[in-house]
Computed example of a mutant assay.
Amino acid sequence: MTTIRVATEADAEEILAIYAKYIEQTAITFEYVVPSIEEFRGRIRHTLERFPYLAAEKDGKIAGYAYVSPFKERAAYDWSVETSIYVDMEQKRSGIGRRLYEELENILKQQGILNVNACIAYPQAEDEYLTKDSVLFHEKLGYTMVGTFHQCGYKFHRWYDMVWMEKFIGEHRENQPDIIPFPKLKLEK
């Protein structure tokens, strides 16, 4: 059985082991160098200061994770976030990604977040480093295509496009209430 829970800095090593494969073997992330454990712990800590960082645990091992970061740092963008999700390559197509995103959206709605945006590496032609699977996954979850940046990411001696997808998860109002930082949220189930 898979459980979804809030990640902690103690999870950094297991989470980084999942992410490292994406860095080294795919163009899904445009990061070139696997970060140190210390840097990765800092990334988790920094995210949790404002937003959720979730881990999917299956059979006592982390099988995937998802988190959000600010869409932009200016106050006018507070209600919009950028999503990130990585599932252990051996666990893909098992429903873990959907479960992570469902719980992430549940928490984000409680925070008052309205827009979730996904920045996705996109191949001009599918290859051994990148497919269109992430776009298809996001479409199944209700995201729509917003735009394409052409040949903006370079990895493995080739150029990749980057697309933005979005999904509205809340009501946009004239007098929008402030978001609730994740540490101050009393989670509802």
Score class of each variant (00 low, 15 high):
18 I>V: 12
18 I>C: 09
19 Y>V: 06
19 Y>H: 10
19 Y>D: 11
20 A>E: 13
21 K>M: 07
23 I>E: 09
23 I>H: 04
23 I>C: 06
24 E>N: 14
24 E>D: 12
25 Q>P: 02
26 T>L: 05
26 T>C: 07
27 A>D: 11
27 A>I: 06
28 I>L: 12
28 I>T: 15
28 I>Q: 11
29 T>C: 08
30 F>M: 10
30 F>G: 05
31 E>M: 03
31 E>T: 07
32 Y>Q: 15
33 V>H: 15
34 V>W: 03
35 P>L: 04
35 P>D: 11
36 S>K: 05
36 S>W: 08
36 S>L: 05
37 I>G: 11
37 I>A: 05
38 E>L: 04
40 F>Q: 06
40 F>M: 09
41 R>D: 11
41 R>T: 07
42 G>N: 12
45 R>T: 10
45 R>A: 14
46 H>K: 14
46 H>L: 06
48 L>D: 14
48 L>M: 08
49 E>L: 03
50 R>Q: 14
50 R>C: 01
50 R>P: 00
51 F>P: 00
51 F>S: 05
51 F>K: 01
51 F>G: 01
52 P>F: 00
54 L>K: 02
54 L>I: 06
55 A>S: 14
56 A>Y: 02
58 K>S: 14
58 K>G: 09
58 K>I: 04
59 D>G: 14
59 D>Y: 04
61 K>R: 15
61 K>T: 12
63 A>Q: 06
65 Y>D: 08
67 Y>R: 04
67 Y>E: 07
67 Y>S: 14
68 V>I: 13
69 S>M: 11
69 S>R: 09
69 S>Q: 13
69 S>K: 11
70 P>M: 03
70 P>E: 14
72 K>G: 11
72 K>H: 15
73 E>K: 09
74 R>L: 10
75 A>P: 10
76 A>H: 10
77 Y>V: 06
79 W>Q: 06
79 W>H: 12
80 S>P: 07
80 S>D: 13
81 V>Y: 04
82 E>W: 00
83 T>V: 14
88 D>G: 04
89 M>R: 15
91 Q>N: 13
92 K>E: 15
92 K>P: 01
92 K>H: 15
93 R>E: 15
93 R>V: 03
94 S>T: 15
94 S>R: 11
95 G>D: 13
95 G>R: 11
95 G>Q: 12
96 I>T: 12
96 I>L: 09
97 G>L: 02
97 G>Y: 00
97 G>C: 10
97 G>K: 00
97 G>A: 10
100 L>E: 10
101 Y>M: 14
102 E>S: 09
102 E>M: 04
103 E>M: 05
105 E>Q: 08
106 N>C: 10
106 N>V: 00
107 I>G: 06
108 L>C: 07
109 K>V: 12
110 Q>V: 03
110 Q>G: 02
113 I>C: 02
113 I>D: 03
114 L>R: 12
114 L>W: 02
115 N>V: 05
115 N>A: 03
116 V>H: 00
117 N>L: 03
118 A>W: 00
118 A>Q: 02
119 C>M: 09
119 C>P: 03
119 C>E: 10
119 C>A: 11
120 I>Q: 01
120 I>L: 10
120 I>C: 01
121 A>V: 01
122 Y>K: 04
123 P>K: 08
123 P>A: 11
124 Q>H: 13
125 A>R: 15
125 A>P: 02
126 E>G: 09
126 E>R: 07
128 E>M: 12
129 Y>A: 07
